[in-house]
């Protein structure tokens, strides 16, 4: 991941045209939201580049606009200025090439079984036949360990199982980029740990491209291959760090701890100034 300092032209420069465009790119992304009191700047001129197979983590305190950035990447809210490109093509609205895993447990559609929930985006967005959609759904659910819950309705699932099903749903449709908005924030500590480990194992195996939003520093260092720190009010890039070399085995190691402390210091100092 790189943060470009020079003013980026609207189109890819000629030198880069020969190379493959990054999976996801945001240039000078600025996002506003309107309240009764007027327009508030949520995100101010943030640059992001996520290469194929990379896992970018957006980390920052509440109010830093990390979820807003994710919503913009998904196409749910329009950019005030700047641009978002998926594989070189500008984003104009939501689409199944960027599937989102939300924090909320009610993201599974309650009127569909777990299998149908996972098969649903394949059916409507990828126009896959029912038999193939079901087969792919079952394979994806097996990957996240939910084979026993195929025919259950979401209300019968625990929070952890719901999030697993949501991850399976996003994986099955094979999007260009996976977007996750604090998917483990509402889980208990034990389940969260388990899901972090399982997500990491899946990422190593499938090499999917991921943008992951969190406010937990250890989760950020563990999940990501690169870290993008944001400061609040409005959201601005604070620092970036490469965390690709950290794996499950490194949790608690001196290097892991020192990076965690450094990130904590960066976020905390910045917050103290504001």
């Amino acid at each position: 991941m790189s943060v470009s300092a020079s003013p980026a032209p609207t189109f890819a420069p000629a030198a880069a045209a020969a190379t493959v465009p990054p999976a996801l790119e945001a240039r000078r992304l600025t996002l506003d939201y309107t309240t009764d009191a007027g327009t508030v700047r949520a995100v101010d001129s943030v640059d992001l580049t996520v290469a194929e197979g990379e896992r970018l983590v957006l980390l920052g305190p509440s109010g830093c606009g990390k979820s807003t950035i994710l919503k913009a990447l998904a196409g749910f809210i329009p950019a005030t200025s700047g641009s978002i490109l998926v594989r070189g093509k500008p984003v104009t609205g939501p689409g199944p090439d960027r599937l989102v895993v939300f924090q909320e447990f009610d993201q599974l559609l309650p009127w569909k079984t777990v299998r149908d929930n996972v098969a649903f985006p394949l059916r409507v967005a990828r126009k896959v036949s029912r038999a193939e959609a079901n087969a792919r759904a079952e394979a994806a659910l097996a990957r996240v360990g939910l084979t026993r819950a195929l025919d259950a309705f979401p209300h019968a699932l625990s929070g952890g199982m719901k999030q697993r099903a949501a991850i399976a749903r996003a994986l099955a449709a094979d999007p260009d980029v996976l977007l996750m908005d604090e998917p483990f924030a509402a889980l208990d500590a034990l389940t969260r740990r388990q899901l972090q480990e399982d997500l990491l194992a899946l990422a190593e195996e499938l090499k999917f491209t991921l943008v992951f939003v969190t406010h937990a520093i250890d989760e950020a260092v563990l999940i990501g291959t690169s870290l993008h720190l944001l400061s609040p009010h409005p959201g601005r890039t604070l620092a970036t760090r490469d965390t690709a070399h950290f794996g499950l085995a490194d949790v608690g190691s001196p290097a892991f701890e020192s990076l965690t402390r450094e990130v904590h210091g960066l976020l905390f100092d910045k917050a103290a100034h504001v």
Partner: peptide, 18 residues
């Protein structure tokens, strides 16, 4: 209708009558 479920539908590119 919960906001998350609306977003899920839009995420799949659903619009209008569907």
């Amino acid at each position: 209708v919960p906001e998350t479920q609306r977003l899920v539908g839009r995420n799949y590119g659903l619009r209008g009558p569907s």
